Measured scan of single mutants.
Amino acid sequence: MDSLVVLVLCLSCLLLLSLWRQSSGRGKLPPGPTPLPVIGNILQIGIKDISKSLTNLSKVYGPVFTLYFGLKPIVVLHGYEAVKEALIDLGEEFSGRGIFPLAERANRGFGIVFSNGKKWKEIRRFSLMTLRNFGMGKRSIEDRVQEEARCLVEELRKTKASPCDPTFILGCAPCNVICSIIFHKRFDYKDQQFLNLMEKLNENIKILSSPWIQICNNFSPIIDYFPGTHNKLLKNVAFMKSYILEKVKEHQESMDMNNPQDFIDCFLMKMEKEKHNQPSEFTIESLENTAVDLFGAGTETTSTTLRYALLLLLKHPEVTAKVQEEIERVIGRNRSPCMQDRSHMPYTDAVVHEVQRYIDLLPTSLPHAVTCDIKFRNYLIPKGTTILISLTSVLHDNKEFPNPEMFDPHHFLDEGGNFKKSKYFMPFSAGKRICVGEALAGMELFLFLTSILQNFNLKSLVDPKNLDTTPVVNGFASVPPFYQLCFIPV
């Protein structure tokens, strides 16, 4: 009986604490739906499609509103004006990374994606500088992407125009580009180590996009005490870190300090320079996690976009025909596509942009946080508050993009057929937390897609009208449904 009384008292205290925290903070924060004790607004949000729920709530509470995930307040920004004001106009104040408990377990605050403060700034600055020195957006990395595009075309030829699921092959190409940047090595598509790495990356994007992960991140005790797919994700990350550590040891034994070959060499050189400046942010643990982040951000996002792009091109054969006509006119058949071609191919450029806009790969991006107490639109948001960005509300804005739910390359073309930029184009987020590999991803999408369409016609196994382009999961990332196609050599 005594234990029951204690339990009831504990629960009562928890409920009172929950109510007090919510009521004391709500006077400062933007308005929002009334949260339930302990669980907050979790029942009012469709976990399978958070973005749709945010759109519905914005119609009631406006472009800036507050939700509670458990006891934790989260300020939501919906629509271009609110997102721009926060991420661009007040970029420094909104540059923090929001709480992501599962990532905390995986990387302990290291790396480039989930770190904060001085650690994040130094690692991000170093990573950007190193990638630029190796030619991100310049010639040397373009050579690597072109080489991988040629290998991709050869792998597709091996399908002999038979029906195939493109998931694996389209994942190999961007993964190999990242391998060449980090390890100075590309792998054969049949290499077992490479296959294991690909498998872990593919599993992780599916797990991260599941409703279960949303629950884990908002009720963090689940991570330590409950079984579930989150444990598989943590094991996959541990596998990748151990693999990278092996490569780091190989580099330490063979590195030429006067001739760095890749990202690992550059990081080890930085560690050597910083060894007298303790404590340094440049450690082996930081290198492991930064490399894992580059793999995660640079492989599955690009391969998922490529997979979605081919599905949309199957669905819209008239678009595919126009792209192939432009390829034939500008590039021809006797040389590989290059980035200089893009400025002469406005329709193809528009298609690449429209694919990214339409699929809305990361509907709410990753959570941000404010780095200080900030007054925002007459609300006071306390330091450390998590900020949720609705990228969907920007990419699918119906004023900027008429009929935003329709796939239409003319969203990025003017009346004369010239490519038209849009400030609403934010597939990689915006501001200080914009994806480090934005330029690389854009290069890969253009070169891989043009190389495929230069060499193959795409054949659907069903009537294009019957192809479903609805994402199968739409949590962290929008993942396309399973499909097969035939690559018919031109």
Score class of each variant (00 low, 15 high):
Phe295Arg: 00
Gly98Pro: 14
Leu77Gly: 00
Pro221Gly: 08
Phe219Trp: 14
Thr159Ala: 05
Glu325Leu: 14
Phe94Met: 08
Val352Leu: 13
Glu274Lys: 10
Ile47Trp: 15
Arg342Asp: 00
Pro33Gly: 00
Thr229Ala: 11
Ser336Trp: 08
Gln261Asn: 09
Lys185Gln: 15
Thr392Asn: 14
Lys28Glu: 10
Asn378His: 08
Arg21Lys: 11
Leu395Gly: 08
Pro166Asp: 00
Ile99Val: 14
Asp49Arg: 05
Ser53Gly: 09
Pro35Thr: 07
Phe219Gln: 02
Thr66Ser: 06
Val462His: 11
Leu453Arg: 01
Asn231Thr: 13
Phe69Asp: 04
Ser53Thr: 11
Trp212Val: 07
Ser180Met: 09
Asp191Asn: 12
Arg150Lys: 09
Phe407Gly: 00
Gln214Glu: 08
Leu388Gly: 01
Leu77Lys: 01
Asn334Tyr: 12
Pro33Thr: 01
Arg132Ile: 12
Tyr243Gln: 08
Tyr347Leu: 05
Val436Pro: 13
Leu268Gln: 03
Met255Phe: 08
Glu104Cys: 07
Asp468Leu: 12
Ser95Tyr: 05
Leu29Met: 12
Leu234Thr: 09
Lys52Glu: 08
His184Gly: 12
Cys151His: 09
Met345Ile: 01
Lys118Leu: 08
Arg357Leu: 01
Arg433Ala: 05
Glu438Ala: 12
Ala161Met: 15
Arg329Ala: 09
Val352Arg: 02
Leu361Met: 14
Ile434Asn: 12
Ser115Lys: 08
Leu77Cys: 06
Leu380Arg: 14
Glu199Arg: 13
Asp188Ser: 13
Leu19Asp: 00
Ser254Arg: 11
Asp408Pro: 00
Ser58Gln: 10
Leu445Arg: 01
Asp414Ser: 10
Leu294Trp: 04
Pro481Val: 02
Ser180Thr: 07
Asp349Ser: 11
Glu285Phe: 04
Thr130Gly: 08
Leu413Ala: 03
Gln484Val: 03
Arg132Ala: 09
Phe134Val: 15
Ile50His: 09
Asn378Leu: 02
Thr302Trp: 01
Leu156Ile: 14
Thr385Cys: 08
Ile123Val: 13
Gln22Val: 09
Val355Arg: 00
Ser422Ala: 09
Pro279Asn: 10
Leu461Met: 09
Leu391Glu: 11
Pro404Tyr: 06
Pro211Leu: 07
Ser210Thr: 10
His353Thr: 03
Ala103Arg: 10
Thr167Phe: 05
Glu300Gly: 12
Phe69Asn: 04
Ile213Gln: 05
Glu438Leu: 07
Lys235Cys: 06
Ser280Tyr: 06
Leu9Cys: 07
Ser451Val: 07
Pro317Ser: 07
Phe412Met: 03
Val6Met: 09
Thr229Val: 13
Gly91Ile: 03
Gly135Ile: 11
Val5Glu: 14
Gly117Asn: 11
Cys172Ile: 07
Glu300Pro: 13
Glu444Ile: 03
Gly171Ala: 10
Arg139Trp: 10
Cys486Ala: 13
Pro402Arg: 11
Glu288His: 06
Glu438His: 06
Phe187Cys: 07
Gly384Cys: 04
Lys241Leu: 01
Asp360His: 07
Glu81Thr: 07
Arg357Lys: 00
Gly91Ser: 13
Cys216Glu: 06
Leu102Pro: 08
Phe183Leu: 08
Lys315Ile: 04
Leu395Arg: 08
Ala161Ile: 03
Pro402Thr: 14
Asn455Pro: 00
Phe94Glu: 06
